[in-house]
Design a protein around this nucleic acid. Structure first.
Lengths: 329, 329
DNA sequence: TTGTAAGCGTTATCAT
DNA sequence: ATGATAACGCTTACAA
């Protein structure tokens, strides 16, 4: 491996000058600069980033914590983040927690051991009190979801609003018996959505039926299962507010197999606005989430924090979401 | 930041002994080991991995190059790799080339600057002669796709076989007018598939119609476009061998809107066997690719190379794929 | 079994 | 404008 020393020797200069050239410092004569470039080229020299990071106490690796990549919402999110990170010479490390507290901690520990420079939490399983203890070791920001009491930057979508406008839409379509899908142990998102769901019901003086609240609605498969749970009920809802387009897809697929008409017998509302939502027949009415934008804003904030060495401050940035009406409602 | 020095001082020992304890070296008395652990705990000490990597000349970051994450095939592939990498304490860095030569080179350069320890190329845009020049800086292996003349480990699926069994299936269903989808400038995969497609035609003495070969079949949208290209033809194929389930999905979606019966008027064969293939109505007949397995095998090979410091040798490991028949054919 | 000291490849401080 | 030198935090001969 050729070192900065080797370049210096060949150019007849000191390592310091070579370093100055590499880092575009001022106060280097054009003559020497040229000499250095020639020597670097001749030796095929490339700076060792590990040594540089040790010396400058920096780290250009960013971890993004998500439940799993095979969830299209998250792969799209990571997609948008990676593009911008790479453009800025930063590396993006995928960290799949699979919704497990312990895995999340494992990744957060990478911050302590300087394996990574900062963390973007696009999902979080642990409470803020626990996550907080890692903040001394590098910037941590939240994107899409966050635990209660979080004192860190938060980029989020107003899920309450999403829950409200979606439910309102269903009510305006004439539905009074509306089911709702919960997904796991998430902190804020689904809970917020449920509050919006509730608010819409209250506004129209409609009761909420506890039997129509389904948990563990993660993916298409759970959507299929939920369809059969509904089918087995005596009192059936006429509409369902699902937790994602995948879940909606599962419900719609099984409805077709069972000759249940959509939206006449069961109106299905998705969430996310995945490409698939438009393609299905009928198209899935859904709540559009600006995934690329939330990824872009989050990674840009992280880059600022990493470059500026400033401490992240508590703040909340809300991005808008909106209703997309298609055939399924 | 607490250093190994601090721990040593508190424990009344030398940094060397502390290092030995951290790295589980033999020849450390139980007594001192305990002392070190206590001191580490008291100070909340964690080793600095950057310093360690500089000293040991190692690197625990693995880059995986893919076109884009939003392609489910690749997000699933990265998913399986990340899981195993993390279990072994290695970090997986997503690198989206967006099928651009230049971006691929940017990422490969990270190997030179020691930003990463090794590269898994799950797609490749540059020729082997170019990629070869990076091999001195760390292990490079190919997974799923590879340029001609590659002298590096290759984990791949027999695409020729895939093309053959798929086409044979369509022919056996009575089709003689079969379209084929190409996707971009990939090196081997689609080309190999086409050779299998050709072989099946030859076996049954069927001609191939050049007008029925469609290029740029990347995603659902292109599938939709292809449907309309077919619709505009005077001489229409009765079956189509697509390049992915997404493309098949696009074609099927538009067929429905245009009241073209599937599979009676147009049989559609997918590729990959994504979850969506099973859910569609009709289900998409497709070629199953063992994505998780190819990811697992690849990352395990990379871990071996990184741990063992051995040079990668030219080799080819083939994993099997098979036909899944559903309603679309 | 433990300690001393050199060195991994940089960059930053302080001279000159 | 340039150079000598120390330091970043760790591991590993070598010595004891």
């Amino acid at each position: 491996m050729t070192r900065i020393q080797d370049v210096a020797k060949l150019a007849g200069l000191s390592p310091a000058t070579v370093s100055r050239v590499i880092n575009n410092h001022p106060y280097v004569s054009e003559e020497k600069r040229k000499l250095v470039h020639e020597a670097m080229k001749e030796l095929g020299y490339v700076p060792n980033s590990i040594a540089r990071q040790l010396r400058t106490q920096t780290n250009d690796a960013i971890a993004v914590l998500i439940p799993r990549l095979s969830n299209p919402f998250f792969s799209k999110l990571v997609d948008s983040m990676e593009t911008i990170a790479a453009e800025n010479g930063f590396k993006l490390i995928v960290c799949q927690t699979r919704s497990q507290k312990s895995r999340e901690i494992t990744y957060l520990n990478w911050l302590k051991t300087r394996q990574i420079g900062g963390v973007i939490m696009a999902s979080s399983e642990n409470v803020w009190e626990v996550i907080k203890t890692y903040c001394d070791f590098g910037p941590i920001i939240f994107c899409n979801e966050y635990p209660p009491l979080t004192e860190a930057p938060i980029i989020y979508l107003n899920q309450f609003e999403g829950g409200y406008i979606g439910t309102r839409h269903l009510i305006e379509r004439g539905h009074t018996k509306i089911a709702f899908c919960y997904a796991g142990t998430q902190f804020t998102n689904i809970k917020e959505r449920y509050l919006g769901f509730k608010k819409a019901h209250e506004e129209f003086n409609l009761p909420i039926n506890e039997n129509w609240i389904f948990d563990e609605a993660y993916d298409t498969k759970s959507g299929q299962e939920i369809f059969y749970k509904i089918k087995a009920l005596k009192q059936k809802p006429t509409a369902i507010f699902t937790s994602s387009d995948e879940v909606a897809l599962g419900i719609i697929a099984e409805s077709k197999k069972n000759a249940v008409k959509i939206p006449e017998e069961l109106a299905v509302l998705g969430f996310d606005d995945q490409p698939i939502a438009e393609l299905m027949d009928p198209g899935i009415s859904t709540i559009y989430q600006p995934v690329e934008q939330i990824g872009k804003v989050s990674i840009e904030l992280m880059l600022d924090l990493l470059k500026g060495e400033q401490k992240p401050e508590t703040c909340k940035l809300e991005l808008p979401l909106h209703l997309v009406v298609r055939g399924s409602t």
